[in-house]
Every structure is written in C-alpha cells, then in structure tokens.
Design a protein around this nucleic acid. Structure first.
Lengths: 232, 232
DNA sequence: AACGTTATGTGACCGCGGGTACCGAATGTG
DNA sequence: CACATTCGGTACCCGCGGTCACATAACGTT
C-alpha cells in the first residue's frame, strides 16, 4: 500500500486493480507545492503530466492588461499538463496552488509504459475535460446573463457541488479569489457577499464563506430575487 | 473510396490507413441537416456519436431568462454527442446547424467495435476537447477584460484561424449570430462592426463579414486602440 | 503587546453597454 | 412586381459595475 499511495484513491484510476495501481504508483514520483506557488507556466512546455493527489490548484489566464482570470479550480484527481501522447495541452493557461498540495508527476515515458495501454484511462481524461468544458460553458453563460450578485451565488453553488462531502463545508477562498473566479473586482465581490449574508444565505468568515442555505443560494443564482422584484 | 467517404478526410481519423477507414466507414450512416435545425437537445440523452463531415454547427446554452449564448462553433472533423464509452457528454449544451450540414452517426455498438481498440482516436478526442477548453477560456477571459468592440475583433480573429485556408474567406455570420458569440446584443454588435469597418479592418456585407486587415484586427482585439488613446 | 501584512468594508464618481423604439435596406416568394 | 421577412443602422436613456480612495479589522510575527 505504501508503494502506490500516489496513485490510489484517485478517480482517474478507479478502474484499475490494486496490482495495476502498484505497478504504476511505484514509478511515479511526487512533488509538494506551497500555497501560491506556480506549478505550470505557458512558457517552457516540457512534457509532464500532473495528477493532483491532495490540495487545490487554480487554472488561470492573464489578460492583456495584466489582470488574472481564474478559469477553473482543480481538486484531488484532476489530471493536467502537457502530454502529446494523450493529446493533452494547457494552451495559454497557468496553474498555481491555492493551498499546499501534493502532485504526482509522470514523464512521457511513464505515460507510454503505464497509461497508453488502457483505454479506460483515456475515457477518464475525456470525462474530466468534458466536465471542464461544461463548467466553462456555464461560467461563460453566467457572465453574459447574470449580474455579479447572482454570479457569486452561482459560483458558490458549484464550488459546493465539487466537494460533495457533508454540507457545512466552508469554502476557503478570499473575496479576491472569488472575484477572479466570477470575473469582477474584489470590492464588488465583497458587496455581493454582503448581500448574500444579509439574506442569511451564507455566513462570512475571514478567508472563507460558509453556505447556510444551499437551496436559497441556488434560487438566488437563478434569479429568484429578480423574479420577485418584477412581480412587485 | 465510396465505402468510407463518411470517415475519410476527417481529422480525427488521420492516423488510420485507408483499409481501416474503409472498415469503419462502411458501417457508419450519415444524416443531413438543414440550417437552423437542432441536432442535439439536453433532454433525451440517447447514446449517439456525431462526427461533422461538412457544414458548420453551433453549440449553445439557454440562459434562465431565455436568451441563448453560443459556446462554440463546430466545423468539419468535430466529434460530439453522448457516448459514455468514450467519456463524452454534452452537459446542458444544445447543438444546431448554422448552415446545411452533413453528419456521420455512430451508435454505442459502432464505437465499441470500431473506435475503442485504437488509442490514437482517444488522443484526437482529447485534443479536440482541449481545444474547446482553450477556446472557452479565451472567450471567458475576453468577456471580463475586453469591451464589446475588442471582443468582436477577437472573435473574428479566432473564426479566421479556424478556417485557415486562404485569406479573403468571408465569415458567414449575421450580426445577431456574432452577438450571441461575444455575449452582447445585436444592436451593440452592429455598432462594433461599424467601427471596425470605419478603421478598414473589415468590410461588411449582408450576412457576412470580410476581414480586410488581419494583423490590424488582432492588434485592435488586444487593445491597440486603448493604448493609443491613453498615449494621447 | 507592538507592528506589518493581508483581508474586508464602504462610499463617490462616471462610463460602458443593455433596453427600447424606430427606420431603411436587402432578399426571397408568390 | 408587390409584399413579407429578415437583416442592418441609429439614437436616447439610465443602471450596473469598474475605478479610486480610504478606513477598519483580523491574523501572524517577533
């Protein structure tokens, strides 16, 4: 069990037997990263495959005027990196750790020897990318159809869905980080969160948001407030 | 050559030999769709894989208030649909033909017998999804960092890159369609295109946009106008 | 406990772009 | 050719949200 700890309990390998995981896991080295550390930059496209074991990263892009837009949050099980054997690329996307994290690394050779043989792994990768596409589509739709308040609510809702453990799980993000996620400024995010707290949908703590009323939050995200306003 | 016309010259199968393509192509039926016809709806998730042979489709979502946001444009070679064997899903996304198109269809059994064996096909699918992720990330970044004029320019630029044939290729989209692509109103898109035409970056024809100055358009999309304005 | 750093709260100003209301032009259809 | 339909162009109003400018609070560090 010590041999393949890097691989076990990771979604993408769920089809493999313990023996198969042991074979793969004994090969793959790990890497720890501190919060805020950049894991992948668009320059220098070395062929490396990363698998998130623990912690959380964010994917982001840099606008022409220097600001930063978060395009996704990656938790345990997420696979990313540059690996042409799998057809996997990062485009112009950066990756940095939100909190201290542990990553598994695989080289081109590792991938060739260990992953290419099994089409179930390719299926898992496709699933992940499909989920990212769906998430990005929803985010894009939100940006052009919802106001900032609703977008913040929507974002919190989908962040809750990600860690689908027990409910009173606080979302550990600062207003600044949330702002980058919904595509607005820190000040505006603060105001939005304030209004959500006013409605008892969330409670605010320094550096985190505790969702109080998940259903209410979802309703708010879908324009319940606006609906009641126009009914008036 | 008649046997596998549905499959040949499609990017995703570029690794296959003629013989292999013949095997696959002889099985797959085709379907023609007229402009405006909906090909895939989120309801009724039958397991079907579509491969675009000719024509153009758009993927889109519907906002809670009924508007429609285009999340991507699919040309020849694009693979989409619901196919759990490949890990491929559409999420809440619709697909409709922009112009008359020809699609190849594959059932679950077709996929199992013909595609699963070859990991090169999985690689191509991953590449496509990766490209969609990159495109969506760029679009999302644009929406939160560029004004409408720049976004229209940016969109035209990336539409040009898609059909990378010879230059004087007109982009056949109405202002309305372009507006849905950049996430704005038809009126605003008209004004934006007017200003681009004013600068001789594009020429406007009914139902299409002809890019005159590709470099200038790219510069405009990256904020060249703003830069010169603040230098003033 | 004093201090620096990071996170949060709040207000004033104002410009971009959505909403709305028309009008003219281009195209196709009988 | 007359007409309907779709597409394109323009102008006004005004509210959302970005920008700037501070103030306060929470937390870690020494």
């Amino acid at each position: 069990m010590r041999e393949h700890w890097c691989i076990s309990e990771v979604e993408i390998f769920r089809d493999l037997t313990d023996k198969e995981m042991a074979t793969i896991g004994s090969q793959a080295p790990a890497r720890t990263v501190a919060a805020g550390q950049v894991v992948h930059a668009p320059t220098g496209t070395a062929q490396v495959l990363y698998i998130v074991k623990t912690g959380r990263l964010r994917f982001y892009r840099v606008t022409t005027d220097g600001r930063t837009v978060t395009t996704g949050v990656a938790g345990p099980g997420t696979v990313f990196g540059e690996m042409d054997l799998l057809g996997l690329r990062m485009g112009g996307t950066w990756a940095e750790a939100i909190e201290a994290s542990l990553l598994c690394l695989m080289s081109r050779n590792d991938v060739r020897r260990l992953l290419l043989s099994d089409h179930r792994i390719a299926t898992r990768i496709t699933e992940q990318l499909g989920a990212r596409v769906a998430d990005l589509e929803e985010r894009l739709t939100d940006v052009v159809s919802k106001n900032v308040n609703e977008r913040v609510a929507s974002s919190l809702r989908s962040l809750l869905a990600t860690d689908q453990d027990r409910k009173p799980q606080p979302i550990k993000l600062t207003h600044e980080q949330l702002a980058q996620l919904v595509g607005t400024t820190r000040e505006r995010a603060t105001k939005a969160l304030g209004e959500l707290a006013e409605l008892n949908l969330v409670r605010l703590r320094r550096g985190k948001v505790v969702v109080q009323d998940e259903r209410g939050l979802a309703a708010y995200a879908d324009g319940a407030y606006r609906a009641s306003a126009e009914a008036r």
